[in-house]
Simulated assay, not measured.
Amino acid sequence: MEAPHGYNASASNVDSTVFFLSGIPGLETFHVWISIPFCSMFTIAILGNTLLLYVIKTDATLHKPMFSFLSMLASIDLVLSLTTMPKTLCIFWFRAREISLDACLVQMFFLHTFAIMESAVLLAMAFDRYVAICQPLRYNTILTHSLIVKVGLMALARGVLLMSPLPFLLRWLPYCGSHIISHCFCEHMALVRLACCNMRFNNIYGIIVAFLVVFLDLTFISLSYAKILRTVFSLASKEEQLKAFGTCISHLCAILVFYTPVILSSIIHRFGHHIAPHIHILLTNFYVLFPPMMNPIIYGVKTKQIQDRVLHLFHRKSF
Rank of each mutant, 00 (worst) to 15 (best):
L78M: 10
I267W: 10
A96N: 13
R193Q: 15
M189Y: 10
I204K: 08
N198Q: 02
W33C: 08
C90M: 15
F215W: 14
N13M: 05
P167A: 04
Q107D: 03
Y54I: 13
G177L: 11
F67C: 04
V131C: 06
A115H: 03
H63S: 10
A124W: 12
I221G: 08
I268A: 00
C248K: 07
F127V: 15
N203H: 11
I281K: 06
L289D: 00
T17K: 11
Q107F: 06
A132L: 09
I263N: 01
R95G: 03
F20G: 06
L169N: 00
L111S: 05
V288P: 03
A45Y: 04
R316M: 09
P296N: 06
S100A: 09
T284V: 12
T88C: 14
P37I: 03
R129M: 00
L235C: 05
F233T: 08
I268P: 06
Q307A: 11
T17V: 03
M163Q: 11
K243V: 09
L194A: 03
F42D: 04
V121M: 09
F168I: 12
R230K: 14
A210G: 12
V160I: 14
L212M: 13
S100W: 13
V301T: 10
I44P: 04
F220D: 06
L27T: 03
F215D: 13
